[in-house]
Amino acid sequence: MLQSSNLTFQYKKTDRLFRFPNIDLKTQENLLILGKSGIGKTTLLHLLAGILKPSSGIVAVNNVDITRLRDNSLDRFRGQNIGLVFQQNHAIQTLNVLENLKARLFFSYQKVNLQKIEALLAELDLLDCKTSKIQTLSEGQLQRLGIALSVIHEPELILADEPTSSLDDANCKIVLDLLVKQAAKTKANLVVITHDHRIRPYFQNTIVL
């Protein structure tokens, strides 16, 4: 469950004050947040993830107000309960695909379950490259690995930042199908922040910034 209320953020006192609409998602409800560049989409995602602290307001994930958590507690909570899909590849370059997923579970304070990892890799058509280094993967494989890293620990909340903006229609559908399917499988809230209007049909709940 995800709720936010009266969220505002300002990078510097002289900068624009961003004000964001309230969010109230029940279990397994998904949300699309649309907006043009510079409107504050990524800022909102970072607030929902606890990467940024709001100037005012609250963000609650599974009834925990993450704006009140101290750094160590916030890092632990985020690692266990939030999955992030970034625009850019954030996999550890010195590790292979399997090792990256093992590391993600380790940093989520979960036991490494090889059967669970391989089942997810098979579902995302990545099993054949589980021992491949990150720099050898194709763009499509990197995108699917990003999804795997965001869901392997079965988070309460999956946040995706512009996951389809650089994709053609066919790959756009593939990525959205994977995200929606994985969110449903783990009963997570999926929040996608983008300017890509092609993905509106995937969501019942939409906010336009």
Rank of each mutant, 00 (worst) to 15 (best):
35 G>I: 05
36 K>V: 14
37 S>A: 12
41 K>R: 02
45 L>C: 03
50 G>A: 05
52 L>S: 04
53 K>N: 13
54 P>R: 02
56 S>E: 11
60 A>W: 08
62 N>F: 06
62 N>A: 10
64 V>M: 09
65 D>F: 03
67 T>G: 05
69 L>Y: 01
71 D>E: 14
74 L>S: 08
74 L>P: 10
77 F>P: 09
78 R>D: 03
81 N>Y: 01
83 G>S: 03
91 A>R: 04
91 A>L: 02
97 V>Y: 04
98 L>H: 15
98 L>I: 15
109 Y>G: 14
109 Y>W: 12
109 Y>C: 15
111 K>F: 03
115 Q>N: 14
116 K>G: 04
116 K>R: 13
117 I>R: 05
122 A>K: 11
123 E>P: 07
124 L>T: 09
124 L>P: 04
127 L>I: 15
127 L>T: 09
129 C>K: 14
129 C>P: 02
130 K>L: 10
131 T>E: 10
131 T>H: 15
138 S>E: 07
139 E>R: 10
139 E>Y: 15
143 Q>P: 05
148 A>I: 09
151 V>L: 05
152 I>P: 07
152 I>S: 07
155 P>W: 01
157 L>Y: 04
158 I>K: 05
159 L>A: 03
159 L>K: 07
159 L>W: 03
160 A>F: 04
164 T>G: 01
165 S>D: 10
167 L>I: 02
167 L>N: 06
168 D>C: 00
168 D>W: 00
170 A>D: 12
